[in-house]
């Protein structure tokens, strides 16, 4: 029998001896969280392999996973080089989107007139498909890498801008009053109130912008259609499609997906690390 007592301070029941069944359940759930998706993915790949083999599908239509894996190894060096290029493009555009979005978001939050005048530009930039602007940018900007960077940046920039501006304004009005009562300086208000209040909004934007930056980088490269030494995964896909090297196409596609997943996991982890101890969106609830 377990002995439970009421903690006089918290008023919560505290179990003194029993092995905590909640902890066990939690551990089992965490294990399932890992095992289930991996198993499902494994099954899907196995089925794919089987169906291709069973129906003798030619590899120029749908290559078997094993063939894609082989291509990944044989073409590894050139594919990796392309992946590195795409990573560089994505991360750089994301970094610039964060710098630009956060600074302009702060200006917007500080000044309504500036926001009202500049917001239409931001919206136009956002709603115009990047595929449609990319050719123009490629004409005006002679350096291809810079042109690609601008395209990817345009896509990732907007969510950061709008969420930063909204987040900075979302501070609790009573807390604002508190800061006024104690005559906080504008800098103190920004540092201790507005920025922490904006963080959940910013983190949500970062998760979206991370994925968008990759999409922007890939799309821009498709439009640019660049060939040669220093090119990314999108170029590999295009090139393989021209040469009818379908396994290579799948291999490059696989690497793009992996990059996307890594970006998603990294931004999710960062969000949990920053907000986990206080914000509703990242707090684990006990069921």
């Amino acid at each position: 029998m377990s002995i439970s007592t009421i903690d006089p301070e918290t008023g919560l029941a505290v179990d003194l001896h029993a092995p905590d069944p909640r902890l066990l359940r939690e551990r089992r759930e965490r294990r399932l969280q890992l095992i289930l998706p991996v198993a499902a993915l494994g099954c899907a790949i196995g089925l794919w392999e089987f169906l291709v083999w069973y129906h003798e599908v030619p590899h120029y239509l749908i290559p078997a996973p094993s063939l894609i894996a082989k291509t990944l190894v044989t073409d590894g060096a050139s594919l990796m080089q392309s992946a590195l290029f795409t990573v560089k493009l994505t991360l750089l555009s994301l970094a610039l989107a964060i710098i630009g979005g956060v600074s302009l978001g702060m200006v917007f939050a500080l000044s309504r007139p500036i926001e009202m005048s500049l917001f239409p530009f931001a919206v136009i930039l956002q709603v115009t498909p990047v595929v449609a602007i990319a050719p123009l940018i490629l004409i005006y900007v002679s350096n291809t890498f810079a042109a690609l960077l601008i395209c990817a940046w345009i896509v990732a920039f907007f969510p950061i801008l709008s969420n930063t501006a909204i987040g900075l304004r979302s501070a609790d009005h009573n807390l604002r009053d508190m800061f006024r009562l104690y005559q906080a300086t504008p800098w103190q208000r920004l540092r201790y109130l507005l920025i922490p209040s904006a963080l959940p909004y910013f983190m949500a934007a970062l998760k979206i912008a991370g994925g968008l930056a990759l999409i922007g980088a890939v799309v821009a490269e498709f439009v640019a259609g660049t060939a040669g030494q220093n090119t990314g995964l999108a170029s590999r896909i295009l090139e393989s499609s021209f040469r009818n090297e379908i396994p290579r196409m799948f291999a490059a596609l696989f690497l793009v997906s992996v990059l996307g997943v890594i970006i998603f996991l990294a931004t999710s982890w960062l969000s949990r690390a920053v907000l986990g101890h206080w914000h509703e969106s990242e707090i684990k609830r006990e069921g």
């Binding site: 009573n174 009053d177 800061f179 009562l181 104690y182 201790y192």
Partner: peptide, 28 residues
């Protein structure tokens, strides 16, 4: 600092510990 104000809601900063919340007026 010669006025203390208590709002209808507790109005605490959710990202800060109890200590940091109480420390705030002095920090400012």
């Amino acid at each position: 600092s010669d006025i203390g104000f208590v709002f209808q809601e507790a109005t605490l900063m959710p990202w800060a510990t109890v200590f940091d919340n109480v420390h705030l007026p002095l920090k400012l």
